[in-house]
Write a protein that binds this DNA or RNA. Structure first.
Length: 260
DNA sequence: CGTATCCTGACC
DNA sequence: GGTCAGGATACG
């Protein structure tokens, strides 16, 4: 499931599965896909060969040799599944069959994911900030982006134009690592605090991408842990709602009054 | 700016 | 039955 580390992992599986292969058949199985991949568009994909797979933030771009691009976004619950000979699961929203028999499914229980086919020469325009995992990001530039934004920092982080790939979980996790209060105005962060926040997000994402944990419980420091003791100071983790999304944080070590 | 909305499933 | 989900956008 899908924030930057998970989409990156999915894109790698996709790459291994489809680069160099030729599409034999495209079957939209739900209106979430069929609304944009019409029967004519699906038919026209037959015979096209995949040249490469690119990830930008949480977006995946399947570049075809003829210049067309299949643009996929998992939204809340999308993922790739290789079907083999198995029947497509109930949650499959799109199945692509390749000439060598490879069968790839977009599984997406909530059916909020999107698939768009762009014709050659008309690539998608996606407004994204720098990749959240990029260690060369200049904190001063991110701070400049955050100036004049009255939203709380946690809400601003969900705007993909600030940092590409940060979602609700890693926004909370990154702020915890950086000991920053999710409620403070984005515009109030110092350059130093922004630098710490960037490091915190990278730390959180690196932990997700690295060792696999047995359960979700061990993967996150604060996300989904309301009432459990903070790993740093033991204070119970609190949950609040910001812009309609849950935010988890430690009221003590992410307190508003602490400086740098 | 916050809120509703798309859609389905899991859980209380 | 209601509420809540790791996303993004169209609203008012």
């Amino acid at each position: 499931m899908p924030e930057l580390p998970e989409v990156e992992e999915a894109a790698q599986r996709l790459r291994r599965a489809v680069v160099g292969r030729t599409i034999a058949r495209v079957q939209p199985l739900h209106r979430s896909v069929a609304a944009r991949v019409t029967p004519a568009i699906a038919r026209a994909l037959r015979g096209a060969t995949v040249e490469r797979v690119e990830r930008r933030g949480k977006h995946q771009l399947i570049h075809l040799e003829d210049g067309r691009i299949i643009h996929v976004h998992f939204r809340m619950s999308g993922d790739w599944a290789l079907l083999g000979d198995a029947e497509a699961p109930r949650s499959a929203r799109l199945v692509i069959t390749f000439t060598d028999g490879t069968r790839l499914a977009l599984v997406d229980p909530r059916a909020l994911g999107t698939v768009d086919v762009h014709r050659a020469g008309a690539p998608p325009v996606i407004a994204l900030g720098p990749e959240a995992t990029d260690p060369t990001i200049d904190p001063a530039e991110v701070r400049a982006q955050l100036r004049g934004r009255r939203a709380p920092i946690k809400v601003a982080l969900l705007d993909q134009r600030i940092l590409a790939g940060v979602g609700n979980i890693y926004a909370a996790e990154g702020l915890w690592h950086a000991k920053l209060d999710p409620r403070v105005a984005a515009s109030s962060l110092t350059r130093r605090q922004v630098a710490r926040m960037l490091q915190g997000i990278r730390t959180a994402m690196a932990q997700a991408g690295g060792a696999r944990y047995a359960t979700d419980e061990d993967r996150f420091a604060v996300y989904g842990r309301r009432g459990e003791p903070c790993r740093r100071c033991g204070t119970p983790i609190e949950q609040l709602t910001q812009a309609g999304r849950s935010t988890y944080f430690c009221p003590k070590c992410q307190g508003a009054r602490r400086r740098s």
